[in-house]
Amino acid sequence: MDPFLVLLHSVSSSLSSSELTELKFLCLGRVGKRKLERVQSGLDLFSMLLEQNDLEPGHTELLRELLASLRRHDLLRRVDDFEAGA
């Protein structure tokens, strides 16, 4: 399986429902409101961002910004580990 997708799945499974709600709010300018209403998990949101090329294995800035906004430094370390091994 693609290591970047494994990372996104790992991050998604670590998010609380309130954190997902916050991420959806933060992505309002990037993803349409109707699409965001269908998001049920972090993976749903990340999939939309992947489709729009806002997220890519070599383009993790948005993911970092979102996780920093949540103050999830543990998840930021996972992104660091991914990039160190990528």
Results as ranks from 00 to 15, higher is better:
residue 64 R to Y: 06
residue 23 L to N: 00
residue 22 E to D: 12
residue 71 R to N: 14
residue 2 D to N: 11
residue 43 L to G: 06
residue 49 L to Q: 03
residue 12 S to T: 04
residue 4 F to M: 03
residue 66 L to M: 10
residue 21 T to E: 14
residue 82 F to A: 04
residue 13 S to F: 04
residue 46 F to P: 03
residue 47 S to W: 09
residue 79 V to K: 00
residue 67 L to D: 03
residue 16 S to Y: 03
residue 68 A to R: 15
residue 3 P to N: 13
residue 76 L to R: 04
residue 40 Q to Y: 11
residue 6 V to H: 15
residue 77 R to E: 12
residue 5 L to E: 15
residue 9 H to L: 06
residue 16 S to P: 03
residue 10 S to W: 07
residue 9 H to G: 13
residue 35 K to S: 12
residue 85 G to N: 12
residue 79 V to I: 09
residue 33 K to Y: 11
residue 60 T to P: 11
residue 50 L to V: 14
residue 11 V to M: 07
residue 27 C to W: 03
residue 59 H to T: 07
residue 73 H to C: 12
residue 83 E to L: 07
residue 15 L to K: 01
residue 48 M to S: 06
residue 69 S to H: 15
residue 31 V to W: 04
residue 14 S to R: 08
residue 25 F to K: 15
residue 81 D to T: 09
residue 79 V to Q: 00
residue 49 L to P: 01
residue 56 E to H: 13
residue 48 M to P: 02
residue 26 L to R: 13
residue 85 G to T: 13
residue 84 A to Q: 14
residue 81 D to E: 11
residue 9 H to V: 06
residue 44 D to I: 04
residue 8 L to V: 04
residue 69 S to D: 12
residue 44 D to V: 05
residue 12 S to N: 04
residue 34 R to T: 12
residue 41 S to H: 07
residue 3 P to T: 09
residue 10 S to A: 11
residue 50 L to F: 11
residue 16 S to D: 07
residue 9 H to P: 00
residue 5 L to D: 14
residue 73 H to T: 12
residue 58 G to A: 10
residue 54 D to M: 14
residue 16 S to M: 04
residue 79 V to L: 10
residue 13 S to H: 12
residue 15 L to E: 03
residue 62 L to W: 08
residue 78 R to G: 05
residue 81 D to I: 09
residue 32 G to D: 14
residue 17 S to F: 10
residue 7 L to R: 01
residue 69 S to A: 13
residue 56 E to V: 12
residue 76 L to I: 13
residue 76 L to V: 11
residue 67 L to P: 02
residue 77 R to K: 11
residue 83 E to F: 05
residue 10 S to P: 01
residue 6 V to A: 15
residue 37 E to A: 13
residue 8 L to S: 02
residue 71 R to D: 13
residue 20 L to M: 06
residue 55 L to D: 06
residue 71 R to P: 11
residue 52 Q to S: 11
residue 20 L to Q: 03
residue 11 V to H: 00
residue 75 L to V: 01
residue 78 R to L: 12
residue 40 Q to L: 08
residue 76 L to F: 02
residue 58 G to V: 05
residue 18 S to R: 13
residue 81 D to R: 07
residue 2 D to L: 04
residue 7 L to C: 05
residue 2 D to E: 06
residue 68 A to E: 15
residue 33 K to M: 11
residue 48 M to G: 04
residue 9 H to F: 05
residue 77 R to H: 08
residue 11 V to T: 04
residue 19 E to S: 01
residue 41 S to P: 01
residue 80 D to H: 07
residue 65 E to D: 13
residue 35 K to F: 01
residue 27 C to S: 07
residue 9 H to W: 07
residue 85 G to V: 10
residue 78 R to W: 07
residue 59 H to W: 04
residue 3 P to A: 11
residue 61 E to S: 10
residue 14 S to H: 07
residue 25 F to D: 15
residue 68 A to G: 15
residue 38 R to Q: 14
residue 50 L to N: 15
residue 39 V to H: 01
residue 51 E to N: 09
residue 1 M to W: 06
residue 22 E to K: 15
residue 57 P to Q: 10
residue 80 D to C: 06
residue 25 F to M: 15
residue 47 S to E: 13
residue 17 S to L: 10
residue 77 R to P: 05
residue 62 L to V: 12
residue 48 M to N: 06
residue 82 F to L: 04
residue 53 N to R: 13
residue 67 L to T: 01
residue 40 Q to S: 15
residue 85 G to Q: 13
residue 36 L to R: 02
residue 10 S to G: 12
residue 38 R to H: 13
residue 39 V to D: 00
residue 16 S to R: 05
residue 45 L to C: 03
residue 60 T to D: 03
residue 7 L to V: 04
residue 31 V to T: 05
residue 42 G to P: 14
residue 57 P to E: 15
residue 60 T to M: 09
residue 19 E to P: 01
residue 72 R to Q: 01
residue 30 R to H: 08
residue 83 E to V: 10
residue 86 A to V: 09
residue 54 D to C: 09
residue 81 D to G: 06
residue 71 R to L: 06
residue 27 C to L: 11
residue 15 L to W: 03
residue 74 D to Y: 03
residue 66 L to H: 04
residue 34 R to K: 14
residue 81 D to C: 08
residue 14 S to Q: 13
residue 53 N to P: 05
residue 84 A to W: 09
residue 27 C to Q: 03
residue 7 L to M: 13
residue 21 T to Y: 08
residue 4 F to Q: 00
residue 64 R to S: 05
residue 1 M to A: 06
residue 86 A to S: 12
residue 73 H to V: 10
residue 70 L to P: 00
residue 82 F to H: 05
residue 76 L to Y: 04
residue 77 R to I: 07
residue 37 E to D: 13
residue 2 D to W: 02
residue 67 L to Q: 02
residue 60 T to G: 03
residue 44 D to S: 05
residue 19 E to L: 01
residue 4 F to E: 00
residue 9 H to N: 15
residue 44 D to T: 06
residue 2 D to P: 04
residue 61 E to R: 10
residue 15 L to D: 00
residue 3 P to Y: 06
